[in-house]
Amino acid sequence: MNKKRTDFAQKLISAPYIVWSAIFIIVPLLMVAYYAFTDKSGAFTLDNISGLSRYAKTFGMSLLYAAEATVISLIIAYPLAYFMSNMKAGAQRMMSMLIMLPMWMNFLIRTYSWITILAKTGIINTLLSKIGIGPVQLINTPGAVVLGMVYNYLPYMVLPIYTVMVKIDKSLLEAADDLGSSPISRLRRVIFPMTVPGIISGITMVFVPSVSTFYISQKLGGGKTMLIGDVIEMQFQSSYNYNLGAAISLVLMVLILISLAVMNRFDDSEEGGILI
């Protein structure tokens, strides 16, 4: 009787969230699927999906760039999070504040400011030409696009890793020392396994937005190399081909899911994928 009542109460409390996610998550997903498998007149078709081989190269490039950005972010973020977690409490707060501070600014402006840094007449090239090195091609290159991704999404890598690192029980580290493990093997065999959940959610949160970005590639890549996000944006914004746009989005979602599933296999800890 009592149990029944709490069950009912729980259902009642969760009802708004279920309705919310149904309306704003499930229904839109179904709509994407509907558009992907219909043509402009609303009749069922597989043409949208079968025509996607045209974008194979673009899909590949987007996944590659996003993977590069994710790896670079991880390489930067892991040591940073490690040092942060060993700082004094005040300094830690200061650091996480500094990492979050740029995120208060609009994403578009943050990306745009890189144009003025990387441009031919930009800050870096002005300095370089002062010391006699001619203007270097920085903007409108794949490197600039990856840089933009790393810069924009780095906080999403640092923060989850940092969060799991500060929670590590210091006595475990002492135990590792006492039992004669070297600093490196301590990092490898004690700290690293415990931070895997943080790494996994970090990777997810950097990889997923990177692979579907369109603004960064347009502004820092000069609009000449299209990523899959650009193609999708084009279908909706200028070509008005919602069906094709939905088909690409759907395939992209599946690709992301596969990537994440593959990655999750590496994560055998209990609380894996906390943020997915």
Binding site: A119, K120, T121, N140, G222, G223, K224
Partner: peptide, 21 residues
Amino acid sequence: QKKILQSYVMDEIFQKMEDGE
């Protein structure tokens, strides 16, 4: 033309031409 093109732009033309970019 793409080989020699710097970028495809719309309103950024203002800034890029004014700066000599």
